[in-house]
Write a protein that binds this DNA or RNA. Sequence first.
RNA 1: UGGGGUGUAGGUCAAUUGGCAGACCGCCUGACUGUUAAUCAGGAAGUUGCAGGUUCGAGCCCUGCCGCCCCAGCCA
Length: 533
Amino acid sequence: MQTSQPLPHHEERNEQDDGDDGEAECEPRAQGHVQSECVLVSSRGTRSPPSRPFDPLRWAYTIVGSARDAPRSTPHRCAHPLGILGAARAPRHSHDTRDMPSASFVRIAELSAHTGQHVLVRAWVTHLRSSGKIAFAVLRDGTGICQTVFVKNQLAADVWTRFAELTTETSVEITGEVRAEPRAPGGFEIGVTDLTIVGASPSDYPIQPKEHGIDHLLDNRHLWLRSPRQRAIAVIRHEIEQAIHDFFYERGFLRVDTPILTAAIGERSGLFATEYFEEGNAYLAQTGQLYGEAAAAAYGKIYTFGPTFRAEKSKTRRHLTEFWMIEPEVAWNDSNDNMRLQEDFVAYLVQRVIERRPAELAELERDVDKLRRITPPFPRLNYTDAVALVQRKGSDTKWGDDLGAEDEALIVEDYDKPVFVFNYPKEEKAFYMKENPDDPRTVLCDDLLAPEGYGEIIGGSQREDDYDKLVARIAEEGLDRKAYEWYLDLRRYGTFTHAGFGLGLERTIAWICGIQHVREVIAFPRLMHRLRP
RNA sequence: UGGGGUGUAGGUCAAUUGGCAGACCGCCUGACUGUUAAUCAGGAAGUUGCAGGUUCGAGCCCUGCCGCCCCAGCCA
């Protein structure tokens, strides 16, 4: 990540809202409202997929945007218990039976391996149906969902009576025989012989298998996480995080953890302050980059992976006040090497999710064909050409201006891959970026814009390695040089060509998942107006 | 911060020119031996965001607050 301004400083930014944008409604449902799936597009256009016939196996809790008229909002679908079915069949990496105590219970994802056997399942009730003397309870345990069947005249009276006490989200232990059953969602069901209620759940469980507003869902985020769509997002996030570590590990990078509590070097806003003993204020890190540069000089190829904080009052679908960032820094890489690393990295992440999490992508109804096209190399546009392109399309942005969201959308619309825009004017970028020897008005840097209107997912640059130029830039920016002495030491003692970048984890996940707002892609999002749960 | 929108039952939304505040989902009761958004019958459920004002009468009109959502700038 790069802060485009002097790092330690911050500028204030302001702004507003986060919201849900939901892309217009699609797929009208019984009572009006309810939108479901929609295609995320750039901020101005909205495209709704053709509505399809209702499929009970796929219905999902839907988020209704409060701004019904807002263009592009996406549907926030939350999900249906049955929708998780695919997940149950997904490749499993973590349910090795060796971890399980013997005489223990079976995870739903493993049920098919126990066909014909009597098993104990521990789970939560997601759905109940009854028709007199036969009744059904659908269970979920985080690994999948399973229908269980209660037949009155085959059960002890007390078990039958206990079924009647079940409510949504009651936690239970159920024993019964696993059998293949074509009528059951997922193809398997359990013929119940015993039921124990572990934890009752009052009948006012806030998340219904119907539409909800984003506010209600976020207020109940701790419960919303239980829905299948949210689980799919969490699984893909996990896969991406693991892929990030694998990518760098395979290439010999060292992971370095940089401080979260830092001394502010400047005094701009945009920082979260906290008291720090006798040292005055400490501030939550906005980036680990400067420390990453020190580590690159020490270890060669490094990356950081951690939370970062911005007190900017930004309220858009791509901003969080607390988000996770991955910042590689490589000694001896120049700006071109840097972009090459970025495209290999991003393509690796996308391919990894396609390969290992197809069920979750299906749960999210992500158009995987679009992801399959994400292969290197990515198109590269230098800033000057980008401005010309945008002007041709009607923008009144002039050379020297930063590219706004509108401009980014104009640039990206011609491609089906992420696009690099490189070498921006010096004034628009941070002091540490290396001056372009071929055009001193610009610096050697790049932004990587994701397709489909997701915006900037990476900001990177080659770093200024000339001591005198860096000192001059610090002065030009009006920064306090004393605060940068340690950083200048990196140029004083054996300066070196190096470059790095910052990838916004949530923006990347949102793009890969096809979720239009980053708040849905992190378990407990921190937004301007949201500190809990 | 600026522009736009919105606030009515637990949830999502209706309510014509100002005239008895409604629907669906969920919940409760009952019926039903293969349901799968089950179905059918019945029921409970409201200080219409807050404070004033106009009016015989305000969810609706006026004034002022507050909250939230969307977009923009900043950035990842």
